[in-house]
C-alpha cells in the first residue's frame, strides 16, 4: 500500500515536471496543477495512512481513541487544494488574456517583457545609433533574433 502510494505520487510529480518543461504554456500550467496534486498527496501521506477509525470523540468519552486517524494532514490537504485551485484558475485566466493580447502560447515567442527597454534593441520611439552595440553582443543567436523580429512587428502596430 505504502509503495503503491509512493509510486502514485512519483508518477504525478513526474508527469507534472515533464509537462512543466514544455514550451507550450498551457502544458506548463497543467504540469503545475499535477505537481500541486502530487504535493497534496504527499501531505496526506505524511500523516500515515492506515488507521480507519474516524477522528471523532465518541459520545460520552472525553478524549480521542488512541488509534484514531490523524486529522491534521486532512486539514492541511484541504487548505492546499483550495489554494491550488485558486491559483490554477488564476493561471488559466492569465493564459486566456495572454493569448488574446500576445497571439501565442509558445514561451519562445513571448518576448514582450524582455524587449521592453532591452539593451540589445534600439529604444522604442526614435532610432538611436547605439543599436550597433546590441549586434556586438549577440552571442546567443536565435533568441535574440526572434526578439528583434517581434519588436519590429510591435513597432509597426504602435
Amino acid at each position: 500500500m505504502t509503495f503503491l502510494y509512493a509510486a502514485a505520487i512519483a508518477a504525478y510529480s513526474g508527469c507534472g515536471l515533464y509537462l512543466m518543461l514544455s514550451r507550450h504554456v498551457v502544458r506548463v500550467v497543467l504540469g503545475l496543477a499535477l505537481l500541486t496534486n502530487g504535493a497534496i498527496f504527499l501531505i496526506f501521506f505524511s500523516g500515515r495512512i492506515g488507521s480507519m477509525t474516524p477522528a471523532v470523540i465518541p459520545l460520552g468519552d472525553q478524549e480521542l481513541a488512541l488509534d484514531a486517524a490523524n486529522s491534521l494532514p486532512q486539514a492541511l490537504a484541504l487548505t492546499a487544494i483550495v489554494i491550488g485551485f485558486a491559483l490554477t484558475a488564476f493561471a488559466v485566466a492569465l493564459l486566456v488574456a495572454a493569448y488574446k493580447r500576445l497571439d501565442t502560447l509558445d514561451a519562445r515567442e513571448m518576448t514582450a517583457a524582455e524587449d521592453m527597454g532591452s539593451p540589445f534593441l534600439p529604444p522604442e520611439g526614435r532610432p538611436v545609433e547605439k543599436a550597433a552595440s546590441g549586434k556586438a553582443d549577440a552571442g546567443q543567436g536565435d533568441q535574440k533574433m526572434t526578439g528583434q523580429n517581434t519588436t519590429g512587428e510591435v513597432k509597426t502596430n504602435g
Binding site: A97, R101, A107, M110, D115
Partner: peptide, 12 residues
C-alpha cells in the same frame, strides 16, 4: 503585452 508576458514568467 509586457505585463502579461512578465506575469506568466513571474507566476510560473
Amino acid at each position: 503585452r509586457e505585463q502579461l508576458d512578465g506575469t506568466i514568467k513571474y507566476g510560473v
